[in-house]
Design a binder for these strands. Structure first.
Length: 564
RNA sequence: GCGGUCGUAGCUCAAUUGGAUAGAGCAACAGGCUACGAACUUGUAGGUUGGGGGUUCGAGUCCCUCCGACCGCGCCA
């Protein structure tokens, strides 16, 4: 039986791999009967001279075959040539080096991939809808001040993952938790009240633990304008609820405006206080009690976190009967775990010690630990050239996200915040981010997109249309053309990887790689040549490249300009 | 002290989760436009992956140990 059939038209890379995989499996079964059956995995080698794909199948067979991986690989390739001679129609090269079996596709395979991208356009790489709901919580800040740099990073990471997941066909629900249940709201109220009193008496004392910075002044002024001096003679029990609530509402509205400006949208802004008032906290607590994972000690109720990998048991209800922050979070996560198939929190660096508790909680509630993931966005150091920008909150040097957006713009900020892996610390150079020069990776990628747009402007409109309608690509043979085709064909698997590993930073790297391959192609291959077939083929490659660049940029949340 | 994250080129970061000779960008040096945007590109140089030990065909990646940085370790949120 011949496993390869190429009669059905052009074969795409995945199909070619799958044909090879089938043939190899048959060859292994015939040659090494007693070898354990194992899946055959392919990877794209780092070095181009090793071909387009490689498999390490021979390594796992070597022991059973009592032979070296290299010998096994050579034997299998010889068998394949006997058993499936038509593989040569798909593969220009099948070779064994150092035990790996390396594959190089025929150009037709990459040409077929380009044709597919042109045909599918902006749908290329999109996953079919799967019936899986993901809850993604990120950004969440105390409602006591403007958004700062950390939220810029968690929002960029969260929004990018959201976009990637949606594109893959997941049902994503984004949530922001408003930490308004604790004593910090009282602090906010007192700070705001002090600002209000200072309008009439500049010497009015500001609370020692109050929120510094002058962002409360405009809110206090607004209160003074609408209410006048009527709060100056009131008792604290009267003015505190009012100033706390007004401060919270105003600041949350500001935070929301900043997030929207940053291109980040949340489906739910969840107030913890409302969660408590609605009885959800009681329900979550009751569930833990029913599960028998709590105990009472000295009048307080504890969660047996140590049974689930945490290093300490955690108080849920204080001796005075008030629930802790963690207790509210139990309720919130219990709620999320019930309505989503997967729950992801993206937290700031100070929540490091919180991960174990959360995962233990998921387990205590009867869910597998990996149903809940907590990702930590590591610390950010702001630089301006060689100078570090002070962000000390105590000293009142608050650098807000709005400040950064004013200085470098949304595009650069979104790009830089996802540049390194989330768990790597980030050094953010504001000077570099706003520089419109070749040192700035954002412009490098955007320039690629704009350069393609420029080619289309110079080209004959009829040619562009012909290329969009589908042209023959047999002339795409130049190494730069094939490298670019191979790169852009990798978009779907890259996005799948970003989602699977929660690794948004891979998108920025990929964007640069695509742009780099394009610029090299552009340098080495004249696009608007006199030969019509060649011209249309290269225009098709440009169309496909622009499609991929636009997609990646849109997932990162960066604009794809036609000109710059 | 306990726990977590990290330590990779002068700088900022990767490395498809155990694969091949550890890669990019910037900075440095030397080249490329009478062709569609030079905001581009080609090349050179730069490394004991913090140190040491272990696991195996194979380790930046896993285990142990030391060194160093940051962050947690409240009946705060």
């Amino acid at each position: 039986m011949n496993p390869t059939t190429t009669s059905g038209g052009p074969i795409l890379p995945e199909a070619a791999l799958s044909i090879f995989s089938g043939a190899l499996r048959d060859a292994i079964a015939a040659r090494y009967q007693d070898a354990p059956e194992a899946g055959i995995a392919f990877e794209a080698p780092r070095r181009p001279e090793f071909g387009d794909f490689a498999t390490n199948a021979a390594f796992s067979l070597a022991k059973a075959a009592r032979s070296s991986p290299q010998q096994v690989a050579t034997t299998l390739i010889a068998d394949l040539q006997q058993r499936a001679p038509t593989l040569g129609e798909l593969f220009a090269e099948i070779s064994a080096t150092a035990g790996f079996i390396n594959l190089r596709f025929q150009p037709e395979v990459w040409q077929a991939a380009v044709t597919q991208i042109v045909r599918e356009g902006s749908n290329f790489g999109q996953g079919a809808r799967r019936n899986q709901r993901i809850s993604l919580e990120f950004g969440s800040a105390n409602p006591t001040g403007p958004l700062v740099v950390v939220q810029g990073r968690t929002c960029s990471i969260g929004a990018t993952l959201t976009n990637a997941m949606k594109f893959c066909g997941y049902d994503v629900f984004t949530e922001w938790i408003i930490n308004d249940a604790g004593g910090q709201l009282d602090t906010l109220g007192r700070s705001l009240y002090a600002r209000y009193r200072q309008i009439y008496d500049p010497k009015f004392p500001f609370p020692e633990d109050g929120y510094p910075g002058d962002y409360l002044v405009p809110i206090a002024t607004a209160i003074a304008e609408s209410d006048g001096k009527r709060w100056t003679d009131e008792d604290e029990s009267r003015w505190l609820p009012y100033f706390s609530a007004t401060g919270r509402d105003t600041l949350v509205a500001q935070q929301r405006r900043t997030a929207e400006r940053f291109g980040v949208h949340f489906d739910l802004w969840q107030s913890e206080k409302e969660l408590q008032d609605a009885g959800a906290v009681q329900a979550g607590l009751q569930r833990l009690i029913d599960d028998g994972v709590t105990y009472e000690d000295d009048g307080a109720i504890y969660f047996r976190a140590t049974q689930f990998g945490d290093d300490k048991d955690r108080v849920l209800v204080r001796r005075d009967g008030r629930p802790t922050y963690f207790c509210t979070d139990v309720a919130y996560h219990y709620d999320k775990l019930r309505r989503a198939d997967r729950v992801i929190d993206i937290l700031g660096p100070d929540h490091h010690g919180y991960i174990g508790r959360l995962k233990g909680l998921a387990e205590a509630l009867g869910y597998p630990r990996d149903r809940l993931d907590a990702l930590i966005a590591q610390q950010i150091t702001l630089m301006r050239g060689n100078e570090q920008v002070s962000m000390s909150k105590r000293a009142g040097h608050i650098v807000t996200l709005d400040d950064i957006l004013d200085e470098v713009g949304v595009d650069a900020a979104r790009f830089f915040f996802v540049l390194p892996a989330p768990e790597s610390p980030l050094t953010f150079d504001l000077q570099l981010a706003k520089e419109q020069s070749n040192e700035n990776p954002v412009y490098y990628v955007q320039y690629g997109h704009a350069r393609i747009a420029s080619v289309f402007k110079n080209a004959d409109a009829a040619d562009v249309k012909a290329a969009r309608d589908g042209a023959a690509l047999a002339t795409l043979l130049h190494p730069a053309e094939l490298a670019l085709a191979r790169r852009i064909a990798g978009l779907p698997s890259l996005i799948a990887n970003v989602v699977e590993r929660l690794a948004p930073h891979r998108l920025t790297r990929y964007a640069r790689d695509v742009a780099s391959d394009f610029h090299q192609f552009y340098t080495e291959c004249k696009i608007l040549t006199v030969d019509r077939d060649e011209r249309l083929a290269r225009l098709s490659l440009c169309i496909a490249t622009q499609t991929v660049l636009a997609r990646v940029l849109s997932i990162i949340g960066v604009s794809a300009p036609e000109s710059m």
